[in-house]
Design a protein around this nucleic acid. Structure first.
Lengths: 223, 223
DNA sequence: TGTCGTAGGATTGTCGATAATTTTATTTAC
DNA sequence: GTAAATAAAATTATCGACAATCCTACGACA
């Protein structure tokens, strides 16, 4: 998910940051779990300094809760938080998609098409076991949603959407197998793509929001 | 701005975090400035560890730019960034105000009234020199805007609004004295308060957005 | 004169040790 | 037997030192 593109070795603090984040995301580290420095030093095989560095950053991003002089804990994952994330995603991505449709050029259209194509080529539930690394589908899916809004022309909006997307993944992983509702995700994505390329902002946003809300019902049904 | 309410001494890393943030906010540390560890160690009178801890967090929050193995720099402050901040504030605070008006109870109304009253009691340009500490008016103003949306019922929305508010302060400080447009801020605040208490969501949001956009014209006119 | 390469100096990133604080375990009092 | 007080153990926060990396200045060579 966070590959080191250049061959240069990045600092330990930075790579540990991504590793811990991935492990919280994929629920290898459970909500509420104590993140002791010694435990983490052993687990990620480095001294306490890079660990603290990573934990401080994760705390700001909301993955970790810090209590001064008492240590770090994996952030809780409550249904209320999930609802909050979902609602904010709808608000931000709706706006971002509108702006992208308004400003996007043909280069953007191509990105959307190719991202959608790559995602479609992958089987959804290929490799999404908890604890595993991030699956190819997950990356392609993320790439598709990022492509949709990439032309929104607002760095802040993109960053916030990305952050909420990542927070959301965790709930998908945590709730895996807890629902029997069957969804046709493929069709939903197709619809979003088509309406976006038609530049029908209202309909595209509507499809996108329904897509997210359906995710909500899927994970925590009956509301 | 960040008072330590309990008498307990908080960790150095945490207090240094707030100090550096304040200094960037108040433009004591200029945009683009190199933030060397030695310089900061001297300035804030502590070792490198708490400094690094603070800088890492500030980097995640967007106050500081980190380049791996090359150090930390005060984030740039461009007109484009300011526009981006402003637009996102409008989007988020409009939504937050709508939700607050929809859900707020009488306790919330009281908070709005008292925050507005306290702000009104202070003279606007009392003590806003760059480099000084955060003024009483600044705190009261912030408190007023936070009170308006406090009942929006979304932790994430509130946090994002708070973050954007703080980012915005910096541009107010940097642009101080650069404009001759005279505004009637007092009246704008009165209007927002009144419409909010009347629960007229559309009109209140409109007044709030005009208030923010006016700030934009004030700081970077002619757009 | 200008570009490339190299050596020296400065800075960042990491470690291990120490001081400060919290948590756990044990004892004492009622 | 429960609760407060105290002692021991564990953990966090910070420091100073060292290694790795980057930046700068100088000189060789075309």
């Amino acid at each position: 998910m966070t590959g080191n593109i250049t061959g240069k070795p990045q600092s330990l603090g930075i790579s540990v940051f991504h590793e811990i984040k991935r492990d919280i995301l994929m629920a290898s580290l459970a909500p509420g779990e104590k993140l002791g420095l010694k435990m983490l030093s052993d687990r990620y095989d480095c001294g306490a300094s890079p660990i603290r560095e990573a934990l401080n950053q994760l705390a700001v991003e909301g993955w970790v809760q810090r209590i001064d002089k008492r240590g770090f804990f994996v952030a809780d994952a409550t249904a209320a938080d999930f609802t909050d994330i979902l609602q904010n995603r709808c608000l931000l991505e709706a706006e971002a998609l509108r702006r992208a449709i308004a400003h996007g050029d043909s280069r953007w259209e191509e990105q959307v098409v190719v991202a959608h194509f790559r995602m479609s080529a992958l089987d959804r539930d290929s490799d999404d076991r908890p604890g595993a690394t991030v699956s190819a589908w997950e990356m392609a899916h993320r790439n598709f949603h990022e492509a949709l809004i990439s032309a929104c022309n607002s760095r802040i909006l993109l960053e916030n959407c990305a952050k909420l997307y990542e927070l959301n993944i965790r709930y998908r992983v945590l709730a895996r197998g807890k629902s029997r509702v069957v969804r046709n995700v493929v069709h939903e994505h197709d619809e979003i793509k088509e309406l976006t390329l038609k530049r029908d902002a209202d309909a595209a946003v509507d499809a996108l929001v329904r897509h997210y809300m359906a995710t909500g019902d899927f994970l925590y049904p009956s509301r």
